[in-house]
Design a protein around this nucleic acid. Structure first.
Lengths: 133, 133, 133, 133
DNA sequence: GTGGTCTAGACCACC
DNA sequence: GTGGTCTAGACCACG
């Protein structure tokens, strides 16, 4: 898989890494049981400190996305994917709620808002299909 | 106007204050030229330090929402509201874009997403009409 | 004479008043010996506090532009206008020096800078001739 | 780079610091991506409080000159330098406009004014070439 | 009374 | 080590 680090972003490095891995798992791109690269290897590839990579893995482990067996490495969890998805959905809804609140404050009509979301979704699909090619 | 502070939020206090004032201005609830409460007064009411209240006003001044004359107080800016609204719209689109990205990664269909947004928007309207009563 | 107060300006009220009176004296618009309006009268016209108007007169007195004889009022000074002009010239040169410094830092050539100043000067002349009509 | 602090100036400390860094960036002396000294280090060198140094960086970040990533440091922004230069030019023109207004009020002829500016510019060049040696 | 500046010091998150 | 937030408190300029 491909992880992109934006140095300019205000999102912490460890959060960027964790988010991208989390998405890949939920998307099924990283199937349960799949071995993850070692912390040191990942850190080297992404040019971040080992401690930062570890923090990302730790968080994902805490959320149930990864499991580490000492001495053997880190793997994508076999855990109940339904529960994981629910957690993610809940976070998404919170995120959307804030955005809708903002939109309402700006006096944007429901129609305009839905139209914007539709457009963004289609752009997202297009981008995805391009990156597959 | 009414400002609510959530101490347990991860959003900094000054950002919470600034955000709520920003929305009130964009919503037209605080008309141009309107005098704002003094930073000391605001700080007292919200139970935060004077510096924290000042930081919120400073940020809003930097964004063009407020103007302050030393010794006289702080006022809602007479500035070009079109420009301010554009900036806000731009930020909103960025926010939505991230959320849509998440939704796509979770495998949510366009229909589901639009339905969720519609529901959230209607809840928002209901909440607003209640707070008016 | 006409004094304009910009409430939005960062320049203090008393300084705006003092500056405009100073310019009027240097320009010869207010001849030596000319009686000035009383502090209370000026304050009333400009809608500022008496203390602010007094501060402006005090400063101008300190600089030698005005003289106050208690009980009779305030008048434009008969003082050596050459000295006053020199002080003003010195301040102007300081002001220009800062601007030129900035211009140099921006990599503006001498020709460009002189051209800009020339244009601004001509605009100033035009504005002045219009306000006379 | 070299930053000079004049404690007796009426210009606030943080503004002096910000101004000198801003000029260095616009002059290209501090290239995009360049790491800035940490606020603590800068504060120590300039003998000012950490907060004061931070305030300067904060302002420059708001203007788009710097970007900072928590935990990693502060860097010269990769931002569109054309836009930054335009803003600076705009501010300069405002500054010059005020000065020309003063000059006109003092009855200075266009020729005298241009001559003064020319002299100041040449002094500036001389000073710059000396500081290089 | 207002806001503006500067200070010291504490605690936290990130790398 | 880095920056981010919040605090209290002092002093000044403005109205």
């Amino acid at each position: 898989m491909q992880i992109l680090i934006a140095n300019q972003s205000s999102e912490p490095l460890y959060a960027q890494i964790a988010r991208q891995i989390r998405q890949a798992v939920l998307r099924g791109e990283l199937p349960p049981g799949e071995p993850m690269p070692s912390i040191r290897h990942l850190a080297g590839e992404l040019r971040v400190s080992v401690i930062t990579a570890k923090r990302a893995y730790d968080d994902l482990e805490g959320e149930g996305f990864l499991v580490t067996s000492p001495g053997r490495g880190t793997f994508v969890s076999q855990a109940d994917s339904t529960r994981l998805r629910e957690v993610a959905l809940c976070q998404l809804e919170e995120q959307l709620s804030v955005a809708v609140d903002e939109a309402w404050a700006l006096g944007i009509s429901q129609e305009e808002l839905l139209e914007t979301v539709r457009t963004l979704y289609e752009e997202e699909e297009k981008r995805a299909s391009n990156s597959i090619k």
